[in-house]
Design a protein around this nucleic acid. Structure first.
Lengths: 355, 355
DNA sequence: GGTTAGCACTCAACTCCCCCGAGTGCTAAT
DNA sequence: ATTAGCACTCGGGGGAGTTGAGTGCTAACC
């Protein structure tokens, strides 16, 4: 059941007006914008049908109409015209990205910052190591005899943890331990090694402590429930939107955003390399039920994907947000994995959201 | 010019009432709370004198009075009774801290979380490496031939950075480079080594790139302008206070909090090991001019100090906040540097703030 | 002289009421 | 199918009036 063209045009005009003004849209307002004039009464008839179809809602009887989630969905999928990112914008973007993005550590926090800045929304940046990268080796770097940094090397990344031991461990013992640990890791028998050590050594023993921490960390890195890296930037921008004037609402959302674990779950599903949009109730987390989450994936390297997105009111300017976000993601992908970027968004910036 | 006892009692009562209710305090309200009854007229006389002295302000003529910053200062310095942390609270605190605090990486983020949770305010946690720790050695851990983790070991800490090279660097070259770098670091001639390399190698060369990044990082770690590590937790709690119902204000403050660099400056000055309090305009940053910052320092180890604190409205419950914060800091110090804790707050939790 | 009762005064906040106007739905004419 | 017209709805804005908490001041009291 396709919507007839005029209804589509009217709905489009309503959504755009509401995106711009955040005010309920009345029939006269719409009647004014068409080249070939239509009377407001006609619009009213159309609007009342659109309401029956579930695309519009009335806050109250004399207040004009407001788009429903279904309207945004239709708008995004079929009505919206793509926003063309100007070359000026691209240049500013590239300038902002040029520096500081060689270090993998920084890429997420900077991506997050840039996205927030360029879209003027709150951004999230998530790095998802596919299926828990397997740890290939561990290296113990001595700081002093009570302190070691353990460096965990995976297929394509490394991360370190500084550990303060309960009792000293001389350097030669540490290198023995390191060898043993790596042997065990190679044979996938790390747990056995640790429980063996646990039998031999007193609790509080430095080597045992280290080994336990290493095991713990390996489990964390390899496990399913590894917490993805999450950055949020520009949270304060939420408060720019009139829908969060209510501090109650704003607080709930900020609360959500500070829960990294929860935010990390946003990236749980399969995410295609296009700009995805989850509008209002399409979000699984109830606290996101009246915001929209616009996001995309990019490759950091063969095994690691980044996800960047923005969170804003359902009435956000989707066209512009999508265009800018995809421009950023394209740049990120190129920067991160050299020139063999895998990010292939159609030029138009066209988007089909996924529930 | 000491304030006479009765005025002090009245002022104390006013501050406490305002802390509790956030409503301007009238003379009758106060008249009610004294054991030996005083008429409201008398209170009015006293209040009008306290106003002349600069301790009270009137929002408007018929609205009761509100404490000035000077009143809070006096309250905190002389009037406030210390809050006794209950054993139940201590137990909950210890339980919350018991786990996860062995790892130096985590201590700040957890400290921050715990402080926010136990004080019900927004917390900040800053780690300040005194004077820029000097880097003792660097270790290059190979992930693959295009990717290395550089581990920087200082007197008492280590941190790593994952670097993606523009061109491959075989492992043996990396270990040569590592040796050269460490030699140069030992002789304090790292810049010379790097500029030497720059002459020999083409730009884009892996070793040169690595060396440059290492130099950059060493400079960052040793430099004066090293950015302190900063964590903020519970930012959303700000919105619980009625003074931030105005989204404008709330946003400015949230903005401030997301500027790590600025927040890091909070710890710039010498900070004694007591609970410090900066009330309203005593804060140097203008954006903090009507909040209070309550904070304390604790030792992470010989060279590294942590600062934890909370940011809240000037009308916060100082007694309780101070007591809980100092309890947490005491625990942290003990946990972090074993049993030789340097944190010596007087048992009472007594506090003398410093501008 | 310090304290207090009493009283006039102030002013934000609340309520009540009215009106305006944007917007709707329906009907009848085109 | 479209549109002009009209009655109707209802939120919001703008006084006017009222309330009540609170003040300052004065005069009496101990």
């Amino acid at each position: 059941m396709e919507l007839p063209e005029r209804k589509r045009q009217i709905l489009k005009a309503i959504v755009e007006s509401y995106i711009e003004t955040a005010e309920p849209v009345g029939s006269k307002m719409i009647a004014g914008v068409f080249s070939q004039p239509i009377s407001s009464a006609t619009i009213r008839n159309e609007m009342s049908e659109l309401e029956e179809l579930g695309f519009l809602e009335k806050p109250h009887v004399s207040a004009g109409r407001v788009p429903s989630y279904a309207a945004y969905r239709l708008y995004v999928d079929e009505l919206m015209e793509s926003y063309r990112v100007t070359t000026g914008e691209i240049e500013r973007l590239q300038a902002a990205m040029r520096s500081r993005l060689r270090e993998l550590d920084n890429i997420m926090v900077n991506a997050s910052r840039i996205v927030s800045h360029f879209t003027d929304h709150t951004s999230v940046s998530i790095v998802d190591r596919a299926g828990g990268a397997s740890v290939r080796k561990v290296q113990l770097v001595s700081v002093d005899d009570m302190t070691y940094a353990a460096v965990f090397v995976t297929e394509n990344d490394a991360r370190s943890k500084v550990l303060r031991l309960p009792s000293p461990l001389p350097g030669n013992e540490a290198s023995l331990l390191e060898r043993a640990l790596n042997l065990a890791i190679g044979q996938r028998r790390l747990p056995e090694l640790v429980s063996g050590l646990r039998m031999m050594a007193a609790p509080g023993n430095g080597a045992l402590f280290l080994a336990e921490k290493v095991l713990e960390q390996v489990r964390e890195l390899e496990g399913e429930n590894h917490s993805a890296d999450v950055y949020v930037d520009g949270a304060a921008r939420l408060l720019n939107n009139r829908e969060y004037q209510d501090p109650e609402k704003a607080r709930d959302l900020l609360d959500y955003l500070s829960d990294r674990k929860k935010v990390g779950e946003l990236a749980r599903d399969e995410i295609p390399y296009v700009v995805n949009i989850r509008i209002g109730p399409e979000n699984t987390d109830p606290r996101l039920r009246d915001v929209s989450f616009v996001f995309t994936a990019y490759d950091l390297d063969e095994r690691t994907r980044g996800i960047v997105g923005v969170i804003g009111p359902t009435r956000m300017d989707y066209a512009r947000t999508i265009a800018r976000l995809s421009a950023i993601a394209r740049q990120l992908s190129r920067l991160a994995s050299g020139e063999n970027a895998k990010y292939k968004l159609k030029e138009s910036g066209e988007a089909h959201g996924g529930k």
